[in-house]
Computed example of a mutant assay.
Amino acid sequence: MVDLSFFRQMWHRIQEDDVPALAAQLAYFLLLSLFPLLIFVVTLVPYLPISELDILAFFDDYAPGDSMELIKNSLADIMRKDGKLLSFGLIAAIWTASNGINAIVRAFNRAYRVEETRSFIVSRLMAILLTFAMIFVFLVALLLPVFGKEIGGWLFANFGLKEEFITVWNTLRWLISILILFIVFLGLYWIAPNKRLSCISGVPGSIFATGGWVLVSLGFSYYVSNFANYTATYGSIGAIIVLMIWLYLSAYIIIIGGEINAYFSEKKEGC
């Protein structure tokens, strides 16, 4: 017989912590953080063997079509501006991008029933460092396919299996993206809460968040592409609505992952 106590407890935690409202707050800060984060990453492109298209392609795998057009057009408009002004704005971009991490920290602290006792400077520095860590992991996710495909193609070509490699690589590309997502979530669940945790304690929520985020993103993207027409309903702001809904669903998944980790942490402490 299936033990339903876990689901009852999770439902209780979602209501008690007001997860829908927290997800709405987090989605707002993620929206404010998204473009500064992309601006910072794009400024690194001249120093890396990747292009702006590689960066956008990473999001294109998951983001709904209308929101991707908004991201592409907005990023193109920003990058056409004065490069010097853009360079001076990098510090502000990182500061703004770290607001998303700060919102995640607040949501996780509520899940673990702890107060934020770290000073403003310490908490902000942690958010900035986590932002840089996410940028680093994101760049690794972009570079692995570039070098992996070149190295794999060269090795398989020596054995006359280059065509077979293309099929295998298309599968590996998805697995690499999922692994990178898992690492990002694990780092957030381990470091962000104001509580001493082991790295392994973040695994249950990371598994849920990775699988849930991929499935929800792909499902919502399919729904928007085939059934919904937000442009007809909302006009020119339809793409913004789609992006906000996607970020809200993403935030909901991330927070529930934190609630799952907090549940198992409390259960372990109660043993």
Score class of each variant (00 low, 15 high):
1 M>H: 07
15 Q>W: 10
15 Q>M: 10
16 E>R: 14
17 D>F: 06
18 D>Q: 15
19 V>K: 06
23 A>T: 08
25 Q>V: 14
30 L>S: 10
31 L>S: 10
33 S>Q: 04
36 P>F: 05
39 I>T: 06
39 I>S: 00
44 L>W: 06
44 L>R: 04
45 V>M: 03
45 V>H: 01
49 P>H: 13
51 S>M: 02
54 D>P: 07
55 I>L: 12
61 D>W: 05
66 D>I: 00
67 S>V: 05
75 L>P: 04
75 L>I: 03
79 M>L: 15
79 M>C: 03
81 K>S: 07
83 G>C: 00
83 G>N: 00
84 K>D: 02
88 F>C: 01
89 G>F: 00
90 L>V: 01
91 I>F: 11
92 A>D: 00
97 A>C: 04
101 I>Q: 01
112 Y>R: 07
115 E>P: 00
120 F>N: 10
120 F>P: 05
122 V>A: 14
129 L>V: 14
136 F>W: 06
144 L>R: 04
151 I>T: 12
151 I>A: 15
152 G>W: 11
157 A>R: 12
158 N>F: 03
162 K>Q: 14
162 K>L: 12
166 I>G: 10
166 I>K: 12
170 N>E: 14
171 T>G: 09
171 T>V: 12
180 I>V: 15
189 Y>V: 05
190 W>H: 15
192 A>K: 08
194 N>V: 10
194 N>A: 14
197 L>M: 12
200 I>G: 12
207 I>E: 02
209 A>T: 08
210 T>I: 09
217 S>F: 08
217 S>P: 08
218 L>K: 14
220 F>S: 13
223 Y>S: 14
225 S>Q: 15
247 L>C: 06
250 S>H: 07
252 Y>W: 08
259 E>R: 07
261 N>S: 04
262 A>D: 00
267 K>D: 05
269 E>H: 05
271 C>H: 03
